[in-house]
């Protein structure tokens, strides 16, 4: 398995070598097969755990780990005893941040949306978009306009002039 470590020259991996593996590979070699043991990646180490525990609402999750919750969830079975603290961390983080996500999805203006969601991870973005869509649908319904048919999103883009049509 020496080719996993690009800096090493030997054909086989030495016992005790530390290297970064993709999650799927670690999951296949890790818990049941006992070929590797896993440590938590950077976004979940003690230092970031402290920061998230202090105030999770201001952390830039997009920069830290774009799929924070999902990634964390898949890590749970790999890390053994640390799994308990990790699980608590994930739920606590979501609990603290959810209020902010919901608030901004229902009340921010169209132009501000990008600024608001810049710090959200993937799960929070999905929630944000769902919230916005529901709000817009509700507004349409209140204005008695929900029976109006609109064109499909993909045709709007194909309506742009193509290069061949201009010349």
């Amino acid at each position: 398995m020496g080719y996993l470590d690009s800096s090493g020259r030997s054909k086989d991996l030495e016992k005790g070598t530390k290297l970064e593996l993709p999650l799927w590979l670690a999951a296949a070699l890790g818990p049941r097969r006992k070929l590797v043991t896993c440590h938590l990646p950077r976004a979940f180490n003690e230092r970031y755990r402290e920061i998230l525990r202090a105030d999770a609402t201001i952390v830039d999750l997009q920069g830290l780990a774009p799929y924070f919750y999902e990634f964390g969830r898949h890590l749970l079975p790999l890390v053994g005893a640390e799994g308990v603290t990790l699980g608590q961390l994930l739920t606590e983080t979501l609990k603290q941040r959810l209020r902010r996500v919901m608030d901004s999805s229902l009340h921010c203006l169209e132009d501000d949306a990008a600024v608001h969601k810049a710090r959200f991870d993937h799960l929070e973005r999905t929630l944000f978009h769902t919230g916005r869509r529901m709000y817009q649908d509700h507004q349409l319904w209140l204005a008695r306009r929900c029976h109006i048919i609109t064109s499909i999103a993909s045709t709007e883009q194909s309506g742009k002039r193509k290069l061949s049509e201009i010349s």
Binding site: M1, L4, W24, L25, A28, L29, R33, L35
Partner: peptide
Amino acid sequence: YPGIRLRHASLER
């Protein structure tokens, strides 16, 4: 064994 296991995981992935 470890090598086979690794390649098998990659195959499934």
